[in-house]
Nucleic acid binder design. Structure first.
Lengths: 349, 349
DNA sequence: TTGTAAGCGTTATCAG
DNA sequence: CTGATAACGCTTACAA
């Protein structure tokens, strides 16, 4: 009623103190979890004044004073990839549970955007960073690391940088795929990946595929290409593979969800019957069970990954957390076998 | 070499000033786009000192002083919904282009989380808010609005609150769906929606469906239910619909992408052939073209929506932007006709 | 063109 | 238990 304060500004701690007839300090204490050190009277007076003025402590000021932004940053290479979003969901929930907020930045796989975003996150003095981008560690990233900002790498490793890593057990994943495919009778394989330069996990998967394929005496090859820029060469590669002579049933293995989508489209355009030609993907997607006769996948435990990443990060924030040696946490995928790896042409036919 | 500064702390403006042998003010000017008012010498000295110390202005401090956080908040009801992510992508790009950063908060359709997130965003003094949540405006939201934080509602309207609205032309969308379905020969329709209480757009679509269905002399009904909690009643509703006697070809219309997914799963479990039973969805998804024989959809222009929302918001931030009357921007969807609405059983059979 | 000094809203360090 | 007072890192009049 009597206050002439502009309606468009948040109340400050000083205003609350005046209204309540106490000092700034007491109000600060009230809002910093030291209520127990205040008398009953004081508490109620502050509470009502704060409510009346609709007061919220200004995080900017808090952060400035104490050096605690309570902010965690997350860099995502491709926000349109459902896998990334699922992991982010996990990270966000875990952060919230611990009283941190998550600032998410999408780089669209663009190093320039990545640098910009890192500068921004640095400017807001984030206390930790979860990264699912960065083929090569940028200067910005190194600086952040040097200043002691804890880093967690998702599904990547960045040699020079000291950081925890959380992700899939990539070698094991490829092995599981090969186990499944050969058990079903597929012996001529094409592995398709997005460019390996952008992520170490892609590199590992691809190398493991080639190594194991040979070791197991399977024929076929591995190929990495950009889905955006080389769409036509993807089609071509698939055609070539399907046309190549072979004694053994053919199957395609997709390095991630994006590839599975692109390959499924291509296969459908060619009128290929799934199962006759095997198809298997790393990453589970909503629709894999819906495309006749169902696409076999290896599902990543996205929720676990997100939670583990956050926990690793927050542990580093604890008093003596920085000292611990880098963690390497690797999860096993889960096989979801479906019709797309069910009916290879029988050699007995 | 000589600096004894702890490696784990960001340099401050004062340290840069010392290194460069100039005053704080000049350094501040250098980093606030007033370089032209500084002599060449000064500029180079500051530049090199800053680089040497790896200096970045502290946004917290900046925000405190000037009252500008340069932060935009976004509240998303369901981050796992690809539509939301696509819009968010658009919002984020537009923000970045204008020098703002976006803080995204996912509420998982939970009012409690929504309140928490709003409190948080308020604490960081965001300058504007894009909302795709909030069935009922919470107290927190009202307060934010009262303080003059510009609001943009995505695909919702919140009567009492003054805010811009950006979204689909819901009535027209339903009309387009009905036009398409009846032109293909479907005359007995079931409309499925997620709970209308959570979003006004759902309400509008559902009402429009019932109104127009009757006006056009079509049979059928509309139903709204929770996909999580009432999965079994969804199955039941579909069964009932399919079993109900009718002279005219039956089709299902899905109120959004989540519903399309759930319905497609249910239909497949029942062994229904798409097309014989029509299926159409609002929202385009990656896989709609992949599920045989393709699912007809009405695609929302997500990028346009995201950009429009941001533009509306940022205009309010300009000197006299607050005065303008609330905008209502409604986009038309795009029809993607596919096999799922192609082959109704001919009445002539 | 450059510098000085007074805050921005909090919290932390002292006294009482 | 409570309250002054000095920072935190930066911007912005106001001087020079």
């Amino acid at each position: 009623m009597s206050s002439a304060r502009a309606a468009s500004r948040r109340a400050t701690i000083l205003e609350v103190a005046h209204q309540a007839g106490v000092s700034k300090t007491s109000v600060s204490r009230y809002f910093s979890g030291e209520r127990d050190r205040l008398s009953e009277t004081m508490q109620t007076r502050i509470a009502s004044a704060a409510k009346r003025l609709n007061y919220r402590p200004n995080q900017m000021a808090r952060g400035l004073k104490g050096g605690h932004s309570r902010l965690i940053g997350m860099l995502i290479a491709d926000i349109l990839n459902p896998f990334s979003v699922a992991v982010m969901h996990g990270v966000e929930q875990a952060c919230r549970a611990k009283g941190f907020s998550l600032v998410v930045c999408n780089t669209d796989n663009d190093p320039a955007q990545e640098r910009d975003h890192l500068a921004l996150l640095a400017a807001y003095r984030i206390e930790g960073l979860v990264i699912n981008a960065a083929g090569q560690p940028s200067r910005e990233l190194k600086q952040l690391a040097e200043q002691g900002t804890p880093l967690v790498l998702l599904d990547r490793s960045l040699g020079e940088l000291e950081a925890d890593e959380v992700g899939l057990d990539n070698a094991r994943t490829i092995d599981m795929a090969l186990d499944h495919l050969s058990s079903k009778g597929y012996g001529d394989l094409l592995y398709l990946s997005e460019p390996t330069s952008q992520a170490s996990s892609r590199q590992i998967r691809l190398e493991r595929f080639e190594q194991q394929r040979e070791l197991r005496g399977l024929t076929g090859r591995a190929l990495s290409l950009s889905l955006d820029k080389e769409a036509s060469s993807l089609e071509q590669a698939i055609s070539d593979f399907l046309a190549s002579p072979s004694q053994r049933p053919k199957a395609l293995l997709c390095g991630n969800g994006n590839v599975t989508l692109a390959v499924t489209r291509a296969l459908q355009a060619k009128g290929v019957v799934l199962g006759a030609i095997g198809l298997m993907g790393i990453d589970e997607l909503d629709w894999c069970q819906l495309v006749t006769p169902g696409i076999t996948t290896l599902a990543q435990p996205t929720k676990d990954i997100g939670r583990a990443a956050t926990e690793a990060l927050l542990q580093r924030l604890e008093p003596n957390g920085k000292a611990a040696p880098p963690r390497r946490i690797h999860y096993q995928p889960k096989l979801l076998a479906r019709g797309s790896t069910q009916d290879p042409p029988t050699s007995t036919a």
